[in-house]
Design a protein around this nucleic acid. Structure first.
Lengths: 233, 233
DNA sequence: CGCGGTTTTGAATTCAATCAATGACAGTGG
DNA sequence: CCACTGTCATTGATTGAATTCAAAACCGCG
């Protein structure tokens, strides 16, 4: 379900850390039996998952990790998709809020107490969570690069490419964006109108196509990649 | 030396994961004896540390983690300061380069083989590295927030505040920036001239003061924080 | 003193934010 | 069934800000 056996082992390029793969399978079963499953609807707030150090992960759907600034502005730090963990870091210094982005979102969670019990019994399980943390690092690094582009076209282009890579490949090259224009704007740090204009411009250039506002079909991946580097319009 | 006992234990709010604190002390000693120390000068390239999955950490000085884009532009993803680890994530998909930012930079490293040997013997050590990974996550999240501000003044203001918190408190409120204007520009994603202008503007408003271009003295922390939220000039 | 690297400043251009308005669409209740 | 309402998406006009190009000032150093 989590792709544990694949990710966790192959990421380190060796198999011997886990004395037996059965240990890992047993862990997954225990994690599943221990975990509390919850189903959510769009616009739900699921802060409760990580309350008191709880650890959650997405089984299906999308959750966004946000910061609400003092001036009321919302910034989306991370988009959590299936197999992504959150709440690994217990840090009181910054408060995040978690919003459900799509209907039929399914999450699992364990309390910090359960986490402690699990890892106390089998401390090598930290390798598993360490690996999840490293995946988070990779996501954030990528996002920093997306956000760091200069023009809005570059940002949108790299964002679309990133999404097409992360989202499960549906029919052909079509990507169903799991978020509204407002969410995209709050995520990459530009105005909603600018998001719309950039998408329109990419469509005008024949690089992408919009079946619906949410469904983006990438006509020319190569050209889309070129948009990221090109300085000229 | 790494502040291990404090961070690693308190971060989880419990002490029982490590059967005895002596284990941790012993681990630190072993890590120190195993680790290879290296001294670097400004502008050195220390990619070699993380070659073949090596894990490094900064003892003193600053190292920047960069991505060199196809068009030659450099983006600084992360600034590594004392006690920061890097190379934890073994991911061939993206190539980072590490540049030494200040003279007298001292690093330690262990090879992935040594890392495997250490954790195989005492798998609970993963908790330690997991904790380091979570610290990296916190850094990157903060940086996403800095980069996500709208105006250059806001970006510079939040960057300066972040730096003043991360850097060891030297005399009073003075902060010696460990990087050039070019580095700041490549880090927060604006032009060098804009960095300079924003700093000049903050100085003009009496919020900061520049003894030298590198040495920033924060006159009014409160006002500097206000710059981050204020929409008007 | 001149030299390279760094920082600052200036002027012109380009680009994104902002304000404002319209269109598309789903859901709701008359 | 249709107007009504709210949300989302797009487009236009304008303003404001950052990039760009250019040049000057500064500083440590040989």
């Amino acid at each position: 379900m989590f792709g544990v056996d694949h990710d966790c082992v192959s990421a380190w390029g060796r198999r011997r850390q886990f004395s037996h793969d059965e240990d890992l399978v047993a862990f997954m079963q225990e994690l599943n039996s221990t975990a509390t499953l919850e189903r959510w609807q769009r616009a739900d707030c699921c802060d409760a998952i990580v309350a008191n150090g709880g650890i959650g992960w997405v089984l299906s759907g999308i959750i966004r990790k946000c910061v609400i600034r003092k001036d009321g502005q919302r910034r989306i730090i991370d988009m959590l998709m299936p197999d992504d963990f959150f709440g690994l870091r217990t840090d009181k210094s910054r408060l995040f809020s978690f919003e459900v982005s799509s209907d039929e979102t399914l999450t699992a969670k364990i309390t910090r107490r359960e986490f402690n019990a699990l890892t106390a019994m089998r401390p090598w399980l930290y390798q598993f969570f360490h690996d999840r943390a490293c995946q988070t690092i990779a996501r954030l690094e990528n996002h920093i690069l997306v956000q760091g582009r200069t023009t809005s076209i570059q940002k949108i282009a790299s964002y679309l490419l990133l999404m097409s890579r992360r989202l499960p490949q549906q029919q052909g090259t079509a990507v169903v964006l799991p978020m509204s224009r407002y969410d995209i704007a709050d995520h990459i740090g530009i105005a909603v109108e600018t998001v719309s204009r950039a998408i329109t411009e990419l469509r005008r250039r024949g690089i992408i196509e919009l079946e619906t506002p949410r469904c983006v079909s990438i006509r020319d991946t190569r050209k889309l990649e070129d948009q990221i580097s090109s300085t000229r319009s």
